[in-house]
Simulated scan of single mutants.
Amino acid sequence: MTHTRESAPMPQGKVTAILVFTTVLWGGSFLFNKIGMREIPPIQFFFFRFALAALLMGIICIPRLSRLNRDIVRRGAMVGVALAAVNLTFVLGVSGTTISRAGYLNNLFVLFIPLISFLIWRERLDRITFAGVFLAVAGLWELASGGAEGFNRGDLLSTVCAVFIAIHIITVSRVLRDEDVYLVTFVQFSTVALAGAAITLAMPWPAFTIGAAGGWSLAYCAIFPTVICFTLQNAFQRFTTPTKAGLIYTLDPVWSMLAGVFILGERLTPRELVGCMLILVAVAGPLLGRLYLEQRHRRLYHLDDVEEA
């Protein structure tokens, strides 16, 4: 998370368009993970993706490496551990369920952020968030009841992934300050790659061959939803509010579902579709409520300024 600059001279249309573009790339990562893991086991795919991303980010950071210091390494590594947990549960979750279901389950991170903040720091939970949690539980029930396998292992891991996404976002907002974004990102990716290497070395190495589909999938996931998306997010999210950014990011599962239906031929039962829609409303509803309150507060603040003038 980066700090918001509400008065920054950046056209909001451009910011919105770029952040929407990142959701398209992130949505595509569900598809390419699924395709790539037909050839490459999930743990190895996770490791190769971030090893390649760290290499590419290292090349980008060559002119900046002289600024790398112990504090950047410490903070980047802390955030990197959370990112490793996110992506490990992500690949294991996607490998065990449809990308349509995984996309919506991952999106629950928006609700987990205030819940975790309440449990750890006793930050106040508003009624809108409570309503969102209730709808999300109803959506999960519909997903569990509508699928042939019920709420399976992949669904559970995708939900756990949402918890780790929330932890990662909270960690970024509380750990990072004014460090060089590129160097911090490089350390993050390197930490994830090292975690992947440790896991793969600790486990038996399965026999597999990387073909064209696996290779292109790895390249896509390392470059677009990793290097490019993290850079764009860090560069442009600061020019909008967290609420608006969160609303834009709810598009992720929409793209993943479209890719699952039209490219992989996935089909959702009516109850699964209802469950996905309930989760989308559960996530987007509280964000829309907060956006309304933010705009109302700005209007009232503006009126007060006009009256004082």
Rank of each mutant, 00 (worst) to 15 (best):
L194H: 02
L232S: 03
P225W: 10
S217Q: 10
L247R: 10
A193F: 01
T231H: 07
K244E: 07
G211I: 04
R238M: 03
W255L: 08
A235K: 15
T269R: 12
F236P: 08
A222F: 04
L201G: 14
P204M: 05
W255A: 05
F224N: 10
A219C: 12
A259F: 15
F236C: 08
A212Q: 10
I223Y: 01
L218A: 03
Q233C: 01
L258R: 04
A212R: 14
Q237P: 03
F224K: 03
A195L: 04
V187R: 09
F236Q: 04
A212M: 13
L268P: 02
F239L: 06
A245Y: 10
F236D: 09
R271L: 12
W216E: 02
A207M: 04
T241W: 07
A259G: 09
W216I: 15
T200I: 11
A193Q: 09
S217C: 00
G196C: 07
F230L: 13
A207S: 14
G196E: 05
M257Y: 01
A222Q: 05
S217G: 02
G211R: 12
G246E: 10
E272W: 08
R267P: 00
A212T: 15
L201F: 14
L264M: 02
A197Q: 09
T241M: 06
F239R: 13
G215R: 13
V227W: 08
A197K: 09
V192L: 11
